[in-house]
C-alpha cells in the first residue's frame, strides 16, 4: 500500500526542515529587525514547550504562565538595571518616586551568578508553591484554569501597582544596559542573543523530550487520561503534577528572560490576561503533545500577528478569535497533528 515512502518521510521531516532553515538560513537573509523578531518568537517557543508539557501531556490548562514568564524577565531586567550603575547609584526611576535606598530584594540581583539561577529557580519555586497548594486539594480542570488566571491578574496588579519597588506599569528597560562592554540593544549583542536563543530552544526541547519519553512521560499522560485510576494504583499524582508545573514555570522564566533582552523591556504587560491565553493557542495551533509543534506554533502565530498588525490591525482579533475556534473544532491536534496524521483509506 505504502507506495510513497518518500512522501511519508517528507511529511515526517518537513517541520524539522522548516525549523532548521529558520535557524540557519534566515539569520543570513533576514534584515536585523526581522531577525530580532524571529529571535523573540523563538524564545516564546520555550514557554510554549512548557505549556505543551503541562497541557498537552498532563492535561493541566494553565492560563497563568505569564506570571513565570514575567518573573524570569524581571529577574534579568533587575540585574541589567543594576549592572550598568556606578557603585552607590540607584536606577534612575527610583528618583521619580523619592526612593532613596535600594529595596532589599534588589540587592542579590547585583550578582550575575544569583541572577542566572533566579531566572529559572524563582519562577519554578512560585509555580511549585502555587501548584502544590492547588493540586494538593485536587483542584483541577476548569477550576485550575480560572484559578491560574486569577493568580495572573493578582500578580499583574501587584507589579503594576508597585511603582516604588519595581517601577510599576513602566517596567524595566534593558536596551541601554551593558553586557561585556556592549549595549544590550546593539546589533552585535542582539545577534549573539539570537544564537543563544536557538541553543536554549534546542536544549529546552531536548529536556522536554527526555521528560516525556520515559516512564515520567507515561505517568503524565496517565494523569491526563485518568487521574483517579492512577491514584488508586498508588501513584502520588500531586507531586508529579507539582513537579511538571514547576518545570513549565522554569521554562517560562527562561523564555521571559530571553524575550526581555530581545525586546528591550519587561513590563507588567507580560502578565496581561490575553497574553497568557495566547500562549496556549500557540501550542494548540502547533499541535498539543508534539513538542516541536509548540515551538512552530509560537513562531508562526507571532509572525502572523506581526504582519497582520502592520497591514490591517483591526482584523487581528477576528483572526485570533477564529483561530481559537478553528483549533478546538476542526483541528484538535493542531497543525502538526493534522500534518502527521495517518491517512486512512476512505
Amino acid at each position: 500500500m505504502n507506495s510513497f515512502p518518500w512522501l511519508k518521510a517528507w511529511r515526517r521531516w518537513l517541520p524539522w526542515l522548516v525549523l532548521v532553515v529558520a535557524a540557519l538560513v534566515l539569520p543570513i537573509v533576514l534584515p536585523p529587525f526581522r531577525l530580532n523578531l524571529l529571535g523573540r518568537f523563538l524564545s516564546l517557543g520555550i514557554v510554549a514547550l512548557g505549556i505543551d508539557l503541562i497541557w498537552g501531556y498532563t492535561g493541566l490548562l494553565s492560563l497563568g504562565q505569564g506570571i513565570f514568564f514575567a518573573l524570569g524577565g524581571y529577574a534579568l531586567g533587575m540585574h541589567l538595571q543594576l549592572g550598568s550603575l556606578a557603585p552607590g547609584q540607584l536606577p534612575e526611576f527610583f528618583g521619580l518616586y523619592g526612593v532613596k535606598s535600594l529595596p532589599g530584594f534588589w540587592q542579590p540581583f547585583t550578582s550575575p551568578l544569583f541572577t542566572f539561577f533566579a531566572i529559572w529557580i524563582v519562577p519554578a519555586l512560585v509555580a511549585g508553591l502555587l501548584g502544590y497548594l492547588v493540586f494538593r486539594n485536587r483542584i483541577k480542570g476548569v477550576y485550575f484554569s480560572i484559578l491560574t488566571q486569577a493568580a495572573l491578574l493578582v500578580f499583574f496588579n501587584f507589579f503594576n501597582g508597585q511603582q516604588k519597588l519595581i517601577n510599576g506599569t513602566n517596567g524595566l528597560k534593558t536596551d541601554t544596559a551593558k553586557v561585556f562592554g556592549d549595549l544590550v540593544g546593539s546589533d552585535l549583542v542582539q545577534k549573539e542573543l539570537f544564537w543563544l536563543t536557538v541553543v536554549l530552544v534546542v536544549a529546552a526541547w531536548w529536556l522536554c523530550r527526555w521528560l516525556t519519553k520515559g516512564r515520567f512521560g507515561d505517568v503524565l499522560v496517565a494523569i491526563r487520561d485518568d487521574e483517579p485510576r492512577l491514584r488508586f494504583t498508588g501513584y502520588n499524582t500531586t507531586s508529579y503534577k507539582t513537579l511538571v508545573f514547576a518545570v513549565a514555570g522554569a521554562l517560562a522564566g527562561i523564555s521571559g528572560a530571553l524575550y526581555t533582552v530581545q525586546s528591550g523591556i519587561v513590563s507588567p504587560q507580560f502578565m496581561a490576561v490575553p497574553f497568557s491565553i495566547e500562549m496556549v493557542i500557540w501550542v494548540a495551533v502547533g499541535g498539543r503533545g508534539t513538542l516541536i509543534g509548540a515551538v512552530l506554533g509560537a513562531v508562526l502565530i507571532n509572525f502572523a500577528k506581526s504582519l497582520v498588525s502592520e497591514q490591517l490591525p483591526e482584523t487581528w482579533l477576528f483572526i485570533q478569535g477564529g483561530l481559537f475556534l478553528l483549533v478546538v473544532t476542526a483541528l484538535p491536534d493542531g497543525l502538526l497533528g493534522w500534518w502527521w496524521r495517518r491517512e486512512v483509506k476512505p
Binding site: 497541557w55 492535561g59 490548562l61 480542570g141 476548569v142 484554569s145 490575553p274 491565553i277 496556549v280 493557542i281 494548540a284 482579533l317 477576528f318 485570533q320 478569535g321 477564529g322 483561530l323 481559537f324 475556534l325 483549533v327 478546538v328 473544532t329 484538535p332
Partner: peptide, 15 residues
C-alpha cells in the same frame, strides 16, 4: 471537553 470550551469561548469573546 470543558478546557476546549474555555478556549473556544475566549475566541468568541475576542471576536
Amino acid at each position: 471537553r470543558p478546557l476546549e470550551t474555555l478556549l473556544a469561548t475566549w475566541g468568541v469573546s475576542l471576536i
